[in-house]
Structure formats: structure tokens, C-alpha cells
């Protein structure tokens, strides 16, 4: 690390940081998947549930959206042990991010179902379809298409939010950066390198989203072109 050329220095840092990236990606993808499962349950509660179930689902969303992710993380990692529930750092991070992301994903799913016009339901009903058939063949295939850009957005947000896990000692991308700063005292270059790695991942994800979107695009539907 003796070379003083910043570009060269950054380039040399990247392989080291990339190892942290694996942890970052593990955390974000697992949190996204668990979050999606919880979000699906929350959405079912909100769309089909009776009034108590709807209130529970809605409160869940409000609580997790209305409090900082960092506070949630600290509460789960440092707070829960005092009532006897203890997780290791990475588990605590994944639990926090899953629960948190579930709230946002539930909102995305609900909004995309709500966006399907009433006339689609009427038309399906008029053909004698059952509620289950209407959702399966008519509403959900269209709603999930609507949801994809926002869901990919949510993965991107998770990749970045997972950096909070460094606070409780998970050695992921940001934490590795911190180690490097302690070792080299070159905070400027190190954090630029860290930021570049995040940026590369997020750009790749949004590219992926574009590909999926164009694959699933409804032919003839031009409004969503931009």
C-alpha cells in the first residue's frame, strides 16, 4: 500500500473490499426474500382480511416505516438480549432488514394491486370467474408487472441500508472499509472505493430490472416507456 497514486491505491483496495461485498449481498438478498414473504402475508391480510387483520397489517407497516432502521437494528441486537432473545450480529442484521423491508414491499404490492382498474375485475366476473381465478389469471399477473421496478428499487435500497450492519460489527463492505481506514489512514480514497463498489452493484441491479421489465412488458402498452 505504499503507492501514493490514489487511483492505483483504490484499484488495489477493491479486491479486499469485494470480499465484504459477498456478506453485503448475502444480507440484502436474504432480507429481500424474507421481506417479500412477510410482505405477501401482510398484503393478503390487507386485501382479503377482515378489519382486525387489516389494522394489524397496517400498523406493522406504519411502525416499521415510522422508525429509523438503525434504531430497529440496535433494538434487536442490543435490546432483545435483555428479555432473553439473543442473536449473533449478522442474524440480527438480516432479521432487522427483513422486517423493515417487508413494510415497504407490502406497500409496493398493495399499490400495484390497487392500480388494476375495477373494469378488469368486472370483466372477469362477467365471464363467471371466481375471486381466486380473477386474482390468479387477471389481477396478479398485471400487478406483479407493475411492482417489478419498485421491488428492484427496494433491493437497491437494501444493499445500501445493509451498511448499517457495520455498526453492530458485521464485517461487510462498509466495515471492511473502516478496517482499511484504520490501517492506512487514507479515509478519502478508501471511502471512495467503498462507494464505487456499492455503485457498481446498484447499477448492475437497475440494469437487470430494465431487462426484466422489457421482457415482461405488455405489448402495445406505451405509457410506461420512459
Amino acid at each position: 500500500m505504499a503507492n501514493t497514486n490514489p487511483l492505483f491505491f483504490i484499484a488495489k483496495l477493491i479486491p479486499y473490499l469485494a470480499q465484504g461485498l459477498i456478506t453485503t449481498l448475502q444480507m440484502s438478498l436474504l432480507s429481500f426474500s424474507f421481506g417479500l414473504c412477510i410482505a405477501t402475508i401482510l398484503t393478503l391480510m390487507r386485501v382479503f382480511g377482515n378489519s382486525p387483520l387489516r389494522i394489524i397489517a397496517r400498523s406493522y407497516v406504519e411502525v416499521f416505516r415510522g422508525t429509523p432502521t438503525l434504531v430497529q437494528l440496535l433494538l434487536i441486537y442490543f435490546g432483545l438480549p435483555s428479555i432473553g432473545v439473543k442473536f449473533n450480529a449478522i442474524t440480527a442484521a438480516i432479521i432487522t432488514l427483513s422486517l423493515n423491508s417487508a413494510a415497504y414491499q407490502a406497500e409496493i404490492l398493495r399499490a400495484s394491486i390497487k392500480a388494476i382498474p375495477e373494469t378488469q375485475y368486472l370483466s372477469a366476473e362477467s365471464l363467471g370467474m371466481s375471486t381466486l381465478q380473477i386474482y390468479r389469471y387477471v389481477v396478479l399477473p398485471q400487478a406483479l408487472r407493475n411492482a417489478i421496478p419498485a421491488l428492484v428499487n427496494e433491493i437497491v435500497a437494501l444493499v445500501k441500508e445493509s451498511s448499517l450492519a457495520s455498526v453492530i460489527g458485521v464485517v461487510e463492505l462498509t466495515r471492511r472499509g473502516e478496517y482499511m481506514v484504520a490501517y492506512t489512514f487514507r479515509a478519502f480514497e478508501v471511502y471512495i472505493a467503498v462507494a464505487l463498489v456499492y455503485l457498481a452493484v446498484c447499477l448492475a441491479l437497475s440494469q437487470l430490472s430494465k431487462i426484466i421489465e422489457s421482457k415482461l412488458k405488455i405489448p402495445g402498452y406505451e405509457r410506461g416507456k420512459a
Partner: peptide, 20 residues
């Protein structure tokens, strides 16, 4: 009523085909 709807065709003003 679903049995009845199977026997009665309905055509809407705004067509309401399934776009996907």
C-alpha cells in the same frame, strides 16, 4: 351466480380485454 354468468355474455363499452 357464476353459473349464470357463464350462460350470459356481457360486452362492455370499454371492451375490458385482459391487456397481458
Amino acid at each position: 351466480i357464476r353459473k349464470i354468468r357463464q350462460m350470459v355474455g356481457f360486452v362492455f363499452q370499454s371492451y375490458n380485454l385482459f391487456p397481458h
